[in-house]
């Protein structure tokens, strides 16, 4: 029977299963072991797996992520936790040069099977330094993969794929989603005995015919709420497409949906300039121009650093009402 578990628990199950699956999997990060994880994603894993597999790192992101990259070149499969993905910026050289480009610069002699995971979201009143959403920035770098699960099922299935992937995968979660529950199958009901969600495959979270809302991460949840309003109040039937990964990107799923609905809005919690939606809008324009009945719209966070003041920060992020309003402008 599928179980109703939280996104956090689903991630933990995925990590636990991969620790059992491969002796070379090791979890390293700030407070991941004895403290049980700043957001409790790794709770209980240190007790179960011990000091060798679950390692508390000092506050030293460039050091420990770079160290993980070096270890991965020799076949270790480090899963590095960033307490906030915002902290990636102090490890930027390691993450952009050493993880992404060593394979290329060595003519394919090296690969870097590392996962860097952690929450990448705004909306929790922690100010600009802790609210970054760098999925577009990292997806800009060839050699990297960027994964953004929006629900418990995908959090588990995608973290398992990420750990088994032989390329660097940056896995962006959301502190707002950690406590949200979803249905996750138990292994004994699955044909393969485990839940694997392939990276690069989008999911239609809600079928529709009038408009496609294209989103990733928590914006998917926002879009689903907007789609309900559109259906109930305005009889507009929106399709919600969850990208699940930014790079690789399921281009086919995007175009298939847009060819069906003829209208698209890209929704993300990222900033607008060269955001994920900018890339997707361009692709839709090139590939589906004649299928479109309206311009492709983009909804993003407000183009300013994250505001601390709780009621104002809320206004910075996409919300269902804004999506409804923009949808009505093209439907």
């Amino acid at each position: 029977m599928p179980r109703e578990i939280t996104y956090r628990e689903a991630l933990r199950e995925g990590l636990d299963e991969e620790l059992a699956y491969d002796d070379n999997v090791v979890i390293i990060g700030e407070e991941v072991a004895e403290y049980n994880g700043a957001y409790k994603v790794t709770e209980g894993l240190w007790k179960k797996w011990g000091d060798k597999r679950i390692i508390d790192a000092p506050i030293s992101e460039a050091g420990f992520i770079g160290m993980g990259i070096g270890a991965s070149m020799l076949g270790i499969r480090p899963v590095m936790e960033l307490m906030f993905f915002s902290f990636a910026y102090v490890a930027f050289d390691q993450m952009m040069n050493n993880a992404a480009a060593c394979r290329y610069m060595s003519g394919g002699l090296i690969n870097v099977p590392i996962v860097v995971r952690g929450p990448a979201n705004g909306g929790t009143n922690v100010g600009a330094t802790h609210s970054h959403t760098p999925e577009n920035i990292f997806a800009n770098m060839p050699g990297l993969k960027v994964v953004t699960p929006s629900d418990a099922h995908d959090a588990k299935g995608l973290i398992k794929s990420a750990i088994r992937d032989n390329d660097p995968v940056y896995f962006m979660e959301s502190t707002v989603l950690y406590g949200m529950t979803g249905l996750v199958p138990s292994n004994d009901e699955l044909e393969d005995g485990e839940l694997i969600v392939p990276i690069g495959k989008a999911k239609v979270k809600r079928e529709g015919s009038d408009l496609t809302l294209i989103a990733h991460g928590r914006a998917v949840v926002t879009c689903l709420a907007a789609a309900e309003i559109l259906a109930e109040k305005y009889k507009i039937n929106a399709e919600v497409l969850d990208l699940r990964s930014i790079r690789p990107l399921d281009e086919e799923a995007i175009m298939t949906s847009v060819r069906k609905t003829h209208r698209a809005i890209c929704v993300e919690e990222n900033k607008p300039f060269c955001g994920v939606g900018a890339q997707i809008s361009s692709m839709i324009m090139e590939q589906c121009f004649d299928d479109l009945d309206a311009p492709v719209l983009r909804i993003t966070s407000a183009d300013a650093p994250a505001f601390y003041s709780p009621p104002i920060e809320k206004l910075q992020l996409p919300n269902p009402e804004e999506i409804v309003e923009r949808a009505l402008s093209i439907c």
């Binding site: 460039a62 050091g63 420990f64 992520i65 770079g66 160290m67 993980g68 990259i69 070096g70 270890a71 991965s72 070149m73 020799l74 076949g75 270790i76 390691q94 050493n98």
Partner: peptide, 10 residues
């Protein structure tokens, strides 16, 4: 420098 530490870690 961190990569060197990582090779040693491995």
């Amino acid at each position: 420098a961190p990569l060197g530490a990582g090779l040693a870690f491995a």
